[in-house]
């Protein structure tokens, strides 16, 4: 039991790190493009990495914090039917949904990791001026999906021992 809680808390920590990486990526993305406007308008110089890096940063913003978003209840589902169920059945449905989610995101994570591994083996680079080794952005993107699969694993484990599956913390979305 304590081992299990240690594991789920560890997964939470990892996912929070992922969210911070995504947040930094969002800040860098804004900075990168603000600088680009200034350098192209005032100095007739364009950062040769602006376009390329902006797309990688986008990938990190979209998917590095996705596991943390699951933990904080930010991903969207249609609750109309399940809400009508009695609590026990609702918990069971939630568990089944989490297991299904673990299956799908596990499949995605494996696909993304093996894509990143092939990229490393082949040595694929980008076709942009910097010829960035693609393993760097693809590796980080794959890590994002691994984090999501882990978040689903933690969710399943928590549901099994009747721990609360979501913790919105200060991020309880919603104006209501």
């Amino acid at each position: 039991m304590t081992a299990l809680r240690l594991l789920t808390r560890f997964i939470d920590r990892l996912n929070y790190v992922g969210a911070v990486v995504a947040a930094l990526a969002a800040a860098l993305l804004a900075l990168l493009l603000i600088v680009e406007v200034i350098t192209t308008s005032a100095f007739a110089w364009s950062q040769p990495w602006a376009i390329e890096f902006s797309t990688y940063l986008l990938a990190f913003v979209l998917f590095c914090g996705t596991g943390w978003t699951l933990r904080t209840g930010g991903h969207i589902r249609v609750a109309a039917v399940t809400q009508a169920l009695p609590p026990a059945a609702r918990r069971l449905m939630d568990l089944a949904g989490s297991v299904f989610g673990l299956g799908v995101t596990g499949f995605i994570a494996v696909a993304m990791v093996s894509q990143a591994i092939r990229t490393a083996e082949i040595g694929s680079r980008s076709f942009y001026p910097l010829a960035t080794p693609l393993i760097i952005p693809q590796g980080l993107l794959a890590a994002g999906f691994v984090l999501l699969a882990l978040a689903f694993l933690a969710r399943v484990l928590r549901a099994l021992v009747n721990d609360p599956v979501e913790d919105a913390g200060r991020h309880a979305g919603g104006i209501e």
């Binding site: 376009i51 942009y128 001026p129």
Partner: peptide, 27 residues
């Protein structure tokens, strides 16, 4: 000189810069 030209890869960006133009990568 100073003309802002859209480029799409290493070679064209290099060439445009050497011609005194501004190479703008753009999607």
């Amino acid at each position: 000189k100073g003309v802002r030209m859209r480029t799409y890869d290493r070679v064209t960006a290099d060439m445009v810069t050497r011609l005194g133009m501004v190479a703008l990568q753009m999607n």
